[in-house]
Computed example of a mutant assay.
Amino acid sequence: MRTRGTRGVGAAVAALLLLTAMCGCRVQEAGAGAGGAPGAGTDGRHRSPAGTQVPSSRSPGGRSPADGRPGTAPGPARGRTAAPARVLWSRGDTGRDVRELQARLRQIAWLSGAPTGTYGELTERAVRGFQARRGLPATGRTDTVTWQRLLGMTHEPGTWELYPMGGQPAGAPDARCLTGRVLCIDKTTRTLRWMIGGRTISTMAVRFGTQYTPTREGVFHIYWKSRHHVSTLYHSPMPYAMFFSGGQAVHYSSDFAARGYAGGSHGCVNVRDESAIAQVFAQVRTGDKVVVHW
């Protein structure tokens, strides 16, 4: 009877040990799975045999279950690429921002022409070259990455870097220009307004005399008009000349049209837009007022 009892107890113990071993294997399977292994939950956490959830952690050796790389935190899913940089300006765009882009490209010799405010072929080519030189996608379009690189290499352009050939906005007219027929000339903004009765008819960029031959300031009147005038002192052409103070006149200047503000006059008010000055010349009368002010 004792032998049988001993055998019965032994069999029970063996059965209990077998059951414990089987449970241990199941727990190990539930805890070892990652990324779709048996027992892994759909939210990235492992489930215990009883169905309760416990946070996942790094496996031995510092390997992250999410990306399988030693010592790294879970990263973005593989195969994804970064979103492309947002395009700010591209061919066909116009405005002051495009003018600033062109001025900055000109500072570092990627653009030779003066800023125009229009994103054309030359600007696109300059941007493409700038991008290629710096290992950026050479699209010719100015995106946020390209713009930040350009900002870091250049300075804020001044007014005459933005408008070296004219085209700048005019300031408010002087109070003396608000009555009558007036050529209202502003030395601060380098602009001329042709005004009648306080209303601006046309506006154009102008250039003045140099330090040693300055343009006089004050209120004057047109005393002589000469369509094909040539300077007797400097032997230079002064087409559409409207004289207002001695030998000083408002007239078209081919030098201003070619060089912009890199040059200066001998005291006259130069206009670079021949079409604009031709129209004004046709309308201005002898005796009309001229106001030159800061």
Results as ranks from 00 to 15, higher is better:
274 E>Q: 12
210 T>Y: 07
281 F>N: 00
111 L>C: 14
169 P>A: 10
45 R>L: 08
171 G>V: 13
69 R>H: 03
236 S>D: 08
289 K>F: 00
240 Y>L: 10
134 R>I: 02
194 W>E: 06
57 S>G: 14
44 G>A: 12
91 R>F: 02
17 L>K: 12
244 F>E: 00
19 L>F: 14
215 T>E: 00
130 F>N: 01
273 D>R: 02
182 V>D: 08
49 P>N: 06
74 P>Y: 01
234 Y>C: 07
59 S>M: 13
101 L>Y: 06
209 G>A: 08
177 C>K: 09
78 R>Y: 01
24 G>N: 11
245 S>L: 01
6 T>S: 13
54 V>W: 03
225 K>W: 03
259 R>H: 14
250 V>H: 05
269 V>N: 05
227 R>D: 00
294 W>P: 06
79 G>A: 14
268 C>Y: 01
23 C>E: 14
233 L>K: 08
287 G>T: 11
75 G>Y: 04
16 L>D: 12
63 R>H: 07
139 T>Q: 08
257 A>K: 13
88 L>V: 15
148 Q>W: 07
90 S>E: 10
276 A>W: 03
140 G>M: 08
18 L>W: 13
58 R>A: 13
5 G>N: 15
268 C>Q: 04
161 E>H: 08
4 R>F: 10
81 T>D: 06
148 Q>H: 10
133 R>G: 01
48 S>W: 11
140 G>Y: 00
15 A>Y: 08
131 Q>G: 07
46 H>I: 05
85 A>G: 02
33 G>W: 03
144 T>L: 09
271 V>I: 13
214 P>H: 06
145 V>E: 04
235 H>K: 11
179 T>R: 15
150 L>G: 04
157 P>F: 03
166 G>Q: 01
35 G>L: 15
115 P>I: 11
57 S>Y: 09
14 A>S: 12
195 M>K: 11
225 K>Y: 02
13 V>N: 08
275 S>V: 09
289 K>G: 03
237 P>Q: 09
264 G>Y: 02
57 S>V: 15
167 G>Q: 04
240 Y>C: 10
171 G>D: 10
41 G>N: 10
185 I>M: 12
75 G>L: 11
214 P>R: 08
241 A>R: 06
106 R>P: 01
170 A>L: 11
25 C>S: 13
178 L>E: 03
275 S>G: 11
150 L>W: 01
113 G>E: 13
258 A>D: 02
130 F>C: 03
28 Q>F: 07
72 T>K: 15
